[in-house]
Nucleic acid binder design. Structure first.
Lengths: 198, 198
DNA sequence: GATAAATACGAACGTTCGTTCTATTATTAG
DNA sequence: CTAATAATAGAACGAACGTTCGTATTTATC
């Protein structure tokens, strides 16, 4: 690996951490440079502009999420076990708190939902992809005859995502330890409604 | 009403609108002053500091929400009708889009969940109060024998809030017109699980 | 080890930020 | 109408912002 690539990676790790705390827009090149132990100009040279740095930060945090939540779930058996693992990984990732300020992408939604541009597009397409992945795992559960044939994958994915959003909200704001339990119970209820009869 | 009170109100209206778009932290006194047609110093004199302005803005947006969503729902019959009205008003408020940049309080959560201080405290207590109001309406629905006696009000409130969060997310990010329908369906099924037998 | 290329630095740019000060104007109360 | 008070303006502050530029230093290639 190039020296440049190495420092670029180190910068992005710091950047994801910082963005988690102060938001994508709240990132300041000066603060980030100090944290990375280098000069402002030396840092920004790796990205060209702040917007490009923001997008790179966004992608990096997406990769982290993928690796921590999605990929391990895909190694579980098709159908309900996979869906339950998805929630479990997600909750673990939430409560583990790798990022001190919460999910970068969720923060970016409220920051950029009304600001057209590259950043918003990256955020939106990321969440569309995510929702698609959930819906797909639902379709698989239907194919495996774990869920009823008339289950609407998008409705299920909507409600699944709702559970995660609420869990994240409560965890971040109230540090409520019952959040995980509540979320699991909610999924159980959601599944029970669509579960295929034996 | 005093002259001072008048302008203070006018400022806060502009401030809520601005905070909706750029976040509570993103508010700049200069921009707000220009929008209100006055000077920076003249504006900030009404609040003392930016933090106080932020808190006042937060309170004002809470009042708006209360008036648009909670209060009208409380005029509906006790029990399920009231709960359904709560969601209906909430969705209407969402899709009506009085605020150009989405809910100020939801934005403040991701901004301040990891920054201790007056602003965070105001946000957190606001959401605790809100959750309590939902749980109370669930307890009433139980008392009215619309829901089963063993219904957990907090679990129900968690799931209810989850639906609204997901609806807000999808509406802001994807402007998906099926959001409202999805949310209503989700509540319908949430209710069906706890509904008391006749 | 020499040389070309990549990488980093430091200084400076023009803006904008929140806040403070004093002076001036507008409002209210007697 | 007058006197006291409240409200606003304007200028200035030090700090931080993202970006640019020329130069120095480190890394990679032969």
């Amino acid at each position: 690996m190039n020296k440049g690539e190495q420092t670029r990676n180190a910068i992005l790790d710091k950047s994801v951490e910082l963005a988690s705390q102060v938001g994508l827009e709240g990132i300041s090149i000066g603060t980030l440079a100090t944290g990375a132990g280098m000069s402002k100009s030396g840092l920004i040279a790796h990205f060209g502009s702040k917007e490009q740095l923001q997008i790179a930060t966004l992608r990096r945090s997406q990769e982290r999420f993928q690796k921590a939540v999605i990929t391990p779930a895909l190694r579980r058996p098709r159908g309900l076990p996979r869906i339950e693992a998805l929630l479990g990984n997600w909750l673990d990732w939430l409560e583990r708190g790798d990022l001190p300020g919460g999910c970068v992408m969720l923060g970016a939604v409220t920051e950029y939902d009304d600001r057209p541009g590259l950043v918003r597009d990256t955020v939106a397409s990321g969440f569309i992809e995510l929702r698609g992945a959930i819906a797909k795992s639902v379709r698989i559960a239907v194919a495996e005859r774990h869920l009823q044939a008339d289950t609407d994958p998008w409705q299920f994915a909507f409600e699944f995502f709702a559970i995660v959003l609420a869990a994240a909200h409560d965890w971040r704001l109230h540090a409520d330890t019952r959040v995980s339990q509540r979320a699991r119970l909610a999924l159980e209820r959601l599944v029970s409604q669509y579960r295929a009869p034996r």
